[in-house]
């Protein structure tokens, strides 16, 4: 028995070495956040570009987004072990994008339930093959279908998880950043984890609905939160002030695209002209802005 334990110890320390702990800060009692710098996902950063973290309750731990690679997922798991002896009971995926879900496999074990928006499984199914097919080439990581884990618990509208004298209120949002955005509100500290419903510094990326996102922004803006965790960008303590740049960007994008549609202009013309002065306000503008114009145009040309 001792021998087995020793072997296991060696194995554990080996995997710990392979995945060194991530930098985390405790932003509120029991809430641990790893914030990432803003990068285009590539072979150097392996897609580890999103904010990820976990919340510790009296009974167990809820992971919120597992990371952009299996390695980052393992590093997150190791960090949790250093912070607390309590087991992970939930892995909450805030949406389908690879930088938020590719660490899932590190937490796949009995007792852990995966949680997501009721449209997350479908999004994983329709996009999974495409994401996986390009991961080796674009991100230099090895992933397969085992890495994409659909939710065991699907949130239709709203749901409360209790992790031991600590309630997390999950909200499944209408189509906004994607069609499967889920936010997590920690009642204890009045913290909302908005994930990619909120971008700071990093240009907002539309992969759902610009109209839907703007109406969710209007709604969320009225709420009081002590802390807000964005999917990309620094921790927010001045809600809703920090929301304003994103709101202004999306609003002016919608206004300008609507005007072009009304004038009978084409998608190609819109992509080449709309919103370019906003470049000075955002990182990764060149990588995402024209995609945003494209998606907004394709959506708004059907609104009347």
């Amino acid at each position: 028995m001792k021998f087995v334990l020793l072997i296991m110890g060696l194995l554990t320390s080996y995997s710990s070495m392979a995945a060194p702990p991530l930098s985390f800060s405790q932003v509120a009692p029991g809430i641990y956040l790893h914030t990432s710098a803003h990068h285009w996902p590539d072979r150097d950063n392996h897609g580890e570009i999103a904010n990820i973290g976990f919340i510790v309750g009296e009974r167990c731990v809820a992971v919120i987004d597992s990371g952009g690679s299996p390695q980052q997922g393992a590093a997150l798991r190791n960090t949790i072990r250093q912070v607390t002896a309590k087991p992970v009971c939930y892995v909450i995926n805030t949406h389908v994008h690879p930088d938020h879900i590719y660490g899932n496999i590190a937490f796949k074990e009995p007792g852990v339930q995966f949680v997501g928006h009721h449209k997350l499984a479908r999004a994983m199914a329709t996009r999974g093959d495409h994401y996986l097919g390009r991961a080796a080439e674009l991100l230099d990581i090895q992933v397969n279908h085992d890495n994409i884990i659909p939710p065991d618990i699907e949130v239709n509208d709203s749901m409360t998880l209790n992790i031991g004298n600590r309630e997390l209120v999950l909200t499944a949002h209408p189509s906004a950043h994607t069609d499967n955005d889920l936010s997590v509100y920690d009642k204890t500290t009045e913290t909302i984890w908005l994930a990619d419903l909120l971008f700071l510094e990093h240009i907002p990326v539309i992969d759902g609905s610009i109209k839907g996102w703007l109406s969710e922004i209007e709604r969320l803006e009225k709420n009081h939160y002590k802390l807000v965790v964005p999917g990309h960008g620094h921790l927010v303590k001045d809600w809703p002030a920090s929301l304003q740049p994103q709101k202004a960007y999306l609003n002016s994008l919608a206004t300008e695209v609507r005007a072009m549609i009304k004038q009978g202009k084409t998608l190609e013309q819109a992509v080449n002209t709309v919103g370019l002065p906003a470049k000075k306000n955002w990182q990764l503008f060149e990588q995402f802005h024209r995609k945003n114009v494209t998606i907004a145009f394709a959506e708004l040309e059907w609104e009347d």
């Binding site: 285009w40 996902p41 994008h97 690879p98 930088d99 329709t126 996009r127 495409h130 994401y131 390009r134 674009l138 189509s175 994607t178 069609d179 990326v205 539309i206 992969d207 759902g208 609905s209 839907g212 009978g264 990588q287 995609k291 998606i295 394709a298 959506e299 059907w302």
Partner: peptide
């Protein structure tokens, strides 16, 4: 492009809801 892009379409349900709707636009 790579990243979070996929050649699927952003909001299937919206497209499904108005399936069959047609618009012509002429100058």
């Amino acid at each position: 492009s790579g990243g979070c892009s996929a050649p699927i379409g952003a909001d299937l349900d919206e497209a499904m809801k108005r399936l069959g709707k047609v618009k012509f636009r002429l100058d």
